[in-house]
Design a protein around this nucleic acid. Structure first.
Lengths: 255, 255
DNA sequence: CAGGCCCTTTCCGTCAGGCGGAAAGGGTGC
DNA sequence: GCACCCTTTCCGCCTGACGGAAAGGGCCTG
């Protein structure tokens, strides 16, 4: 058989793509199965990746992403620069609130969480660093969507919106109104849209004082303590302004 | 010409390896140069990687690591599990001290920084998340070395030790004594070994209460405020014990 | 304890797809 | 306008990637 129209480089990427949040570890035959590669081929590719350090092997024989690949990828400028600029402000915000502080960027019609601070007293969340969500599903995503090019907004509004809770806004018209609201107000409160037990407060991070929106910062609190959200507005705004200026400063010196 | 003894998968990895902390962005010809690949080959490989999202292109035409690769690699269990277990304790420690809190693992004879908390009031450091250092050069590294298999210790002690400052211990005999000390005491104070302006306090993180040492936690303070180090002992110990137990709990439930 | 099942590893002959030299294309600075 | 450098495309040759097959090994079941 040879339903194989994938370049050698493509095979490497296929193998890497097999590892995600739900499957951090996989066996050789799983890898072969998922990629559609012959086991012998998968075996060779995996062995080469492992020799380099991109994959590592657990005692039980299963494979997982290796430290070496993590090192290379952790230099990703999109996350690295943002993270460096934002962390001190996120720390301040955490210290003031002791809630979950999250940082995310938009990638197409999805939201990718880039950094997160959580302590012992924070609410448990289902989001994790490195995971994706539809951009319309979260408060942070809607903030990014509101400041995204029109085409993206239309693309998202055109698609059916998933209801995660009874409160999730799924009517495109209502969502459109929310996006308008977000652009007027700086801060957006997202009430139990993704989970019944959480309320999020989110604001846009810019590059420089008035530059383009490149990320969103959010605080997630328990829904039962939702009245707290009001008091989070000011500290959140201070943080996003601080981060935006810091990003502007770094972008300028980089040129 | 064809001084080419590298498999197709190897070429992909060669290209990825070209990106490090000193060179987060590179042009096509740089990539070709560094890997020794023909430009046309490098071009094809880079294009394939970019199509998948492993590489992205800046406006100036240079290439850098893409968000997609970062996502996959951020699932690396070695860092992910450790990070998740340690972060809340690192937060507490940061809040109590407002100093740099660092988490690192050992990879062969080198130290890799896995996580770092730093706020506005913390000292500027030359270490970054995702960077490597010789294991003997830092306080955290020596803690990991002290708890590493004998063979590694001998390997490191046999090699010449680099002097980063006038205070750096380079005599194998003195270092050996330090390693003994580390095993007796739980906490190790590393005085201006890597930089003249910093003092580090480090302790080992275990898997479970008495499991193997898998990481090191460290606090870095300004050398001028070195007397603070004494007071950091107890909070640091509390943190490493908390993390160790949390790791033990997770490892057990994973089985 | 034998038998069967499934996953991993190795081997090897075939042939497609990767390879790189060369040349065209495009941008910039002197 | 010319020269230089970087990027992109093209194409014919040939090598090294491919996958079927079989051996090896661990584990459960009857």
């Amino acid at each position: 058989m040879s339903a194989n129209r994938v370049s050698a480089a493509g095979k490497v990427l296929q193998v890497l793509a097999v590892f995600d949040r739900e499957h951090p570890a996989r066996t050789l035959s799983e890898i072969a199965q998922c990629t559609g590669l012959a086991v012998s081929t998968a075996h060779r590719v995996v062995a080469e990746l492992a020799a380099w350090g991109a994959l590592e092997r657990a005692e039980d024989g299963s494979w997982h992403v290796g430290l070496r690949l993590w090192e290379v990828a952790s230099g990703c400028p999109r996350t690295q620069i943002l993270r460096d600029a934002a962390l001190p402000f996120m720390q301040d915000l955490y210290e003031a609130t002791h809630e979950n502080i999250q940082l995310a960027v938009r990638e197409g019609t999805e939201l990718v969480f880039v950094e997160r601070i959580a302590g012992h007293r924070s609410v448990e969340l289902l989001t994790m660093v490195g995971t994706r969500f539809p951009v319309a599903s979260t408060g942070m995503g809607r903030v990014l969507l509101a400041h995204a090019p029109r085409e993206f907004q239309e693309e998202v509004l055109a698609a059916p919106l998933r209801a995660w809770t009874p409160y999730t806004v799924t009517d495109p018209r209502t969502l459109r109104a929310q996006l308008d609201l977000i652009r007027r107000e700086q801060v957006f409160v997202s009430d139990r849209q993704l989970s019944e037990s959480t309320v999020a407060v989110a604001a846009p991070v810019r590059t420089g004082r008035a530059g383009p929106v490149g990320a969103a910062l959010g605080i997630v609190v328990a829904a039962r303590g939702a009245e707290r959200a009001r008091g989070l507005r000011e500290p959140l705004l201070r943080a996003v302004h601080g981060i935006s200026e810091e990003l502007g400063r770094r972008a300028r010196t980089a040129l």
